[in-house]
Design a protein around this nucleic acid. Structure first.
Lengths: 246, 246
DNA sequence: CCAAAAGTGTTAGGAGTACACCCATGA
DNA sequence: TCATGGGTGTACTCCTAACACTTTTGG
């Protein structure tokens, strides 16, 4: 056991990636030996944190070590620390023994991150660590380690909540995007379908979504106008508005 | 150091209490000896957690031990674990030494709670522990231990966010309340003033806020009709609605 | 010329906002 | 009878929701 690590506090990352069609989550494949057969299962990227690093720093470091991802949007979720979280599944117990994990109790502090996966800005996934993008809809059928299924569900709920009131959709898009992509994000994440005209009317009232003098290229249909999100304008405008819903 | 305690993970509670005029927060007064004078400062109720209890359990236990409060609404916030959070103020360092606190690093998991403080349902504060209700507006002038000021600010922000979309106001009210009290909560917490007629119109559309055949008693003005919040009706209704704001 | 997605306007209903006076009670 | 907060309606504006056809490009 590395002396630099706090033995009972970890971070985990729920990295959401949007590929212009699906919302995906980044999982690490494991092959664990259990009852003399090799079983495949999945976990969230994560690890113990060090004595000499802040939580955010730890989360960034571990994500980079395990996946190569850097400089992406990141937000802390609530901690998960139930007594039995590491030992709910017998496979997990035998895995912990196999890696010589000494601790009876680990409290984990999950983060969620957002990233765009479209063809241009190729993602620099470090494949030696077995990281894979999985459609979020498929995850519920997969065996996930520990309480990672629960963490993922919580992360998705939080993403939905934050997406309602914060300009997070743009973290899932390339810097220049057509409006149909923006709409798709809301449709996929909230599992609804939205009216194109009403959506665009709504967007056109938001001055921080700026039309560019550029169009998509290389598509076999009428090319869409590209837009960008202006953080500056957004912050200048969002010092007004009161509104509540009980 | 108690062997039953995890040495580097604590919980803290931000307990908000509404007294029909102000939003208050529960703080514990400390007298610390620093540079040969006794100084008064304040901290959030909190302590290290035990190896054999879940986070929520720990939070409930510690809140009860320190204040006598039980069975109140409680919600976990994000963890605070920066490297210097215990040693930003020299007073805190000398206090930690005085209580023989061994740990260089403690990550705390804060919770916020909501409670009603009106005269009827007298609160059972255990005064031996020096717990006091302080108006939230006054807290920024008080010396708070560690990063507790920061935790409090985050808790208040979170309370505001959740109050926009969840029926939390009722946790701050007695079970039967006049509409003016409900309005006051939004006005105090969001620091706005709302139009009485418009507020009441909005409320009358919410079927889960139910008018009772009862009136206030003992007030020296026209007595107000009392209302209650129906959790049942609320949950039956809130399985609809899509709406987002970027 | 076909397939595919982009782009565009109108109408009707509901929600939000601004605003001023009378009512019921206890002291 | 006075002081105090309770209680009520209307008109205007703005946002939302429903709905179908034409345009531009590549193949």
């Amino acid at each position: 056991m590395d002396k630099q690590l706090i033995p009972n506090v970890s971070v985990d990352s729920v990295v959401f990636g949007f590929d212009s069609v699906h919302l995906n989550v980044l999982l690490i494949g494991r092959n664990i030996l259990y009852k003399k057969t090799v079983q495949r299962d999945w976990k969230l990227p994560g690890d113990l944190i060090r004595w000499d690093e802040d939580l955010d720093t730890a989360s960034k470091r571990i994500l980079k070590e395990l996946t190569g991802l850097q400089n992406i949007y990141m937000n802390q979720l609530k901690a998960f620390g139930s007594l039995d979280r590491l030992i709910r599944r017998p496979q997990d117990m035998s895995w912990l023994i196999s890696i010589d994990h000494p601790e009876r109790r680990v409290i984990t502090i999950p983060y969620y991150s957002l990233i765009n996966l479209s063809k241009n800005g190729q993602i620099n996934l470090d494949l030696t660590t077995n990281a894979h993008w999985v459609h979020v809809d498929d995850v519920s059928h997969l065996p996930l380690a520990f309480d990672h299924q629960e963490i993922l569900v919580f992360a998705l709920e939080t993403l939905r909540n934050e997406l309602r009131t914060k300009p997070l959709a743009f973290e899932l898009l390339p810097s220049k995007f057509p409006l149909s992509q923006l709409q798709k994000i809301y449709e996929v994440i909230f599992e609804v379908s939205l009216d194109k005209r009403n959506f665009r009317k709504k967007i056109s009232n938001l001055n921080y979504i700026v039309a560019l003098n550029e169009k998509e290229a290389g598509v076999s249909h009428r090319p869409a106008k590209l837009f960008m999100f202006s953080k500056d304008i957004y912050h200048r405008l969002k010092t007004e508005n009161f509104d509540f819903t009980i």
